[in-house]
Design a protein around this nucleic acid. Structure first.
Length: 101
DNA sequence: TGTTTGACGCTCC
DNA sequence: AGGAGCGCCAAAC
């Protein structure tokens, strides 16, 4: 029986996101098995340690924008661009980068 | 056990 | 097109 907490599941879903692609919090939550729980995804990611190997930066809101307050926002943007995800006007082209399996 | 909180999403103005 | 408000879900207090 999977006694896995949301953290575990979210992490797994997160690890499934290919490089150069992004997903919304809602999608991530759904992938983790919590449809409609987009907020949960965000709150869970918030707990992740800094040196996390997980691609937490590939998660953005449905508007294609970075939801993080300042400290991490810049960091996330840099990581995304580094993977090839271009932010135009601080926005990501969901039509192209949104992970669509 | 009940209430509040969020790295959200969608609709309406 | 941009901004505001209401709704959802699970975890934390």
């Amino acid at each position: 029986m999977e006694k896995q907490n949301s953290l575990e599941r979210i992490c797994q879903a997160l690890a499934a996101i290919p490089k150069g692609r992004v997903v919304t919090y809602g999608d991530l939550a759904e992938m983790a098995g919590y449809p409609r729980a987009a907020r949960l995804a965000g709150q869970t990611l918030r707990k992740l340690p800094r040196g996390t190997k997980l691609p937490w930066h590939r998660v953005i809101n449905a508007q294609g924008r970075i939801s993080l307050p300042e400290p991490g926002a810049s960091r996330q943007r840099e990581k995304l661009e580094r993977e090839g995800v271009i932010l135009l006007k601080g926005r990501v082209d969901m039509g192209k980068y949104r992970w669509k399996p």
